[in-house]
């Protein structure tokens, strides 16, 4: 069953130099219990797209979508009040910076209990019991004592465990994890990731994992979306993506993995993501693409079929070889 269904999601921000399109026509489907990864460089719009789903963008953002459905309900048509009944209950989010994402003025117990009180109307004792159970679940020792702790008394890894406990509090159907391990030590990263994946499997929760770590994607997800400059350039089952990437950007990303490097120098992608001022007319990746043609530079690319990973490309790759589509179909 499809839990989250997004079609043509676009988010633009009002800036002093005109509107900036941070997310440009993104589609996404997540089934119940599925783990989907969204990868892309910083600034590729992956976090913004998910914040739009949560309704957490600042007022400078304009969100449009042909479809924005969650659990059979149209998020776009809801009033803010109706939406708040879903957010934090059926749809939860974990953020990148655990240390600053917890309110320094309130105890861990209070912050976990808040959603329980708001959405489930649990009493004080019930909230406490549930919070202890949650802290146990996310592997925090001595949960009774930790309930009274303030965020500054916790390490980064502990804070992220608390954030996960908060997200799990009302037994959500879908969790969005926005680079949950980026701010943590490498050793802790693996623990937190294992925890997330274990909880996702045990509870049958859908999970959208935003990351820029291809290693994480390979280990955890069933399906991958690749974002570039606000656009979704490719979507494939994980196995297929790693075996045969169809978009040149995906191929370049995979080639840049240190594990795959063969020479002394690590391969990299030349150039940077285009900004507001230097947006190319055709394909947004064309200035950095090895295979770019004149047509790529001038004409926005079409979306390929599912067999080619829905690649947004004039010349999708098959086994690393660009397929010249028949000119002007």
């Amino acid at each position: 069953m499809t839990l989250l269904s997004i079609r043509n999601l676009t988010v633009s921000f009002a800036t002093s130099r005109g509107p900036f399109r941070a997310v440009d026509g993104v589609d996404l489907d997540v089934a119940a219990g599925e783990l989907v990864a969204i990868v892309g460089e910083s600034g590729s719009g992956k976090s913004v797209a998910m914040l739009a789903v949560m309704g957490l963008l600042p007022w400078t953002a304009t969100v449009t979508a042909d479809r924005l459905m969650f659990d059979g309900k149209d998020l776009a048509a809801m009033t803010p009040r109706e939406r708040r009944r879903i957010i934090g209950r059926d749809l939860a989010m974990i953020f990148q910076e655990p240390m600053s994402s917890l309110n320094p003025c309130f105890t861990v117990g209070f912050q976990i209990g808040e959603a329980l009180k708001t959405h489930l109307g649990l009493g004080r004792a019930a909230r406490r019991d549930r919070a202890i159970a949650l802290l146990n679940e996310v592997g925090i020792p001595e949960p009774e004592r930790r309930l009274r702790a303030f965020p500054h008394q916790l390490s980064g890894g502990m804070s992220q465990r608390v954030m996960i406990a908060m997200a799990l509090a009302c037994r959500p159907k879908l969790i969005i994890a926005d680079e949950p391990t980026t701010a943590l030590d490498v050793t802790i990263q693996a623990q937190i990731l294992d925890l997330l994946v274990r909880l996702q499997r045990e509870n049958g929760v859908g999970l959208v994992l935003i990351t820029h770590d291809m290693g994480v994607v390979a280990e955890t997800s069933q399906r991958v979306c690749v974002h570039y400059a606000g656009q979704q350039v490719e979507m494939q089952p994980t196995e297929g993506l790693f075996r045969d990437p169809h978009h040149p950007y995906t191929a370049a990303l995979l080639a840049a993995l240190p594990e795959r490097a063969s020479g002394r120098l690590l391969p990299s992608i030349p150039g940077v993501v285009p900004g507001l001022a230097d947006r190319p007319k055709g394909c947004l990746f064309s200035p950095r693409c090895r295979f770019a043609t004149e047509r790529c530079r001038t004409v926005p690319p079409p979306r390929a079929g599912a067999e080619l990973g829905l690649a947004l490309c004039h010349t999708p790759l098959v086994q690393g070889v660009p397929q010249r589509a028949p000119a002007a179909a």
Binding site: R85, I87, G88, R89, F95, E97, S101, N103, A115, H119
Partner: peptide
């Protein structure tokens, strides 16, 4: 504009 305010909103609080 702090992260924890966003967290609070993500809980669906009023």
């Amino acid at each position: 504009s702090e992260d924890y305010v966003r967290t609070a909103r993500a809980k669906g609080l009023s």
